[in-house]
Design a protein around this nucleic acid. Structure first.
Lengths: 221, 221
DNA sequence: ACAAAGCTGACACGGGCCTGAACGCGCCGG
DNA sequence: CCGGCGCGTTCAGGCCCGTGTCAGCTTTGT
């Protein structure tokens, strides 16, 4: 797995790089946003470890750029700011997870491994579930060959359901997939996105199991 | 996923139990080491949430026992001691992760989900009991290959019975599995759910043992 | 035969779920 | 600079089914 590390502190940077690369991943290290952009122009990464306090801007800017251009790489934010506010801001910008300094290197490695596992467990780029084709790498969904346009949240819900097709997924699990943790939602967001998803991929594709959760029906075969 | 919660504080215990079970996992709650050992003797758990300060000893003892006998279950330590020392001690004893109180419930849920994901990628955990197939991870029940639609309570009853197939389970035990600690039930709820379950999975699957309880028959083979 | 225990159909209620609509916000084109 | 648009989020109204309860019946043990 290719990992891009964006971190200006030399001590932390080298420690993280050594640790992650010793886990068997290829790590490129950029000390500022400019270098990070240059590296991303010539190589693609499955995971970005992102510091927020950089000399030439905020890491969140890079994250937003990535998401805007459709880069689906996993992003793990490393930041000294432990306030809930910046945490939520990062997650809203499309980060997958958040580690506050000082963090345990073993914990970092565990999260990196989790991302790695996610990618390894999907050998085939496109996954077929009934009439649906789900392309995780490109965040694309097709139904009967036609490409569907899903919003970010809609995609998140679908991907969570597709992770274990046929399984009943609790609402709280979907919520976790949408907001990671730290953020709080006070209304029926999940229900609304399930509704919108159903309108796009077909009502019959998602079954409600009252009191338990939702279920992506594998059409039964 | 089967989760064993070992926690003596009733407030924390019930909160954690409700939260984790709402994510779709089956949670057994032991308030001391002795109970925890008893539960582990009759059931197997994929995850143990372990408090260290228990009335009859340290949770670390239980953890060491588990590792000694080759129990590979994931262990997540919940402890008020935030010192590095005990943290390292716990990790050395074979814990997978460490949460210090007070911890964010959403964060706990996220870690539990991480463990769950790890286990979901493993081959089918489906359990066969006569003509029944019980998939605890996906909350699915099949009879002769056909998927049955169970309500939340019906599923809870079936899962409790399936935990020890062939054993006689007292009504009070089923009641405990249905309702959170301290809930009041004033009527024959268990009987009613056994009735409804029987209608779906087949009358002969659940035997009544008068004066003692119910029994999920493994058909004898 | 009698009492205790369990079985079963019916029913009212509450809450889980669905859905349309509205609002704020960031983004884009004019 | 401004108006439109897409998206995320919240809210209210309404539906519907799971749930709990009860009454009456059947079964079991003595």
């Amino acid at each position: 797995m290719r990992v891009l590390l964006v971190e200006n502190d030399k001590m932390i940077g080298s420690a993280v790089r050594d640790h992650v690369s010793s886990s068997g991943h290829a790590v490129d290290w950029a000390e500022d946003l400019r270098t990070a952009r240059d590296l991303q122009a010539v190589a693609s990464y499955e995971l970005v470890l992102l510091d927020l306090g950089l000399p030439d801007g905020s890491g969140l800017d890079l994250l937003r750029e990535m998401r805007r251009r459709g880069d689906a790489a996993a992003v793990l934010i490393l930041s000294a700011r432990d306030q809930i506010a910046s945490r939520i801001e990062g997650l809203n910008a499309g980060a997958d997870d958040y580690l506050t300094k000082p963090f345990d290197l073993a914990e970092l490695r565990a999260r990196v491994s989790a991302v790695s596992r996610r990618y390894l467990s999907q050998p085939s780029p496109e996954r077929r579930i009934g009439p649906l084709g789900i392309d995780s790498a490109n965040r694309k969904v097709t139904r009967d060959g036609e490409t569907l346009a899903l919003s970010a949240r809609e995609w998140a819900v679908l991907e969570r359901l597709a992770r274990s097709p046929g399984a009943i997924v609790a609402k709280s699990e979907i919520e976790d997939a949408l907001y990671a943790f730290g953020a709080e939602v006070e209304s029926n967001t999940v229900e609304v996105y399930v509704l919108r998803l159903r309108k796009k991929i077909g009502r019959e594709m998602i079954a409600t199991v009252r009191g338990m959760g939702y279920q992506l029906v594998g059409n039964g075969g």
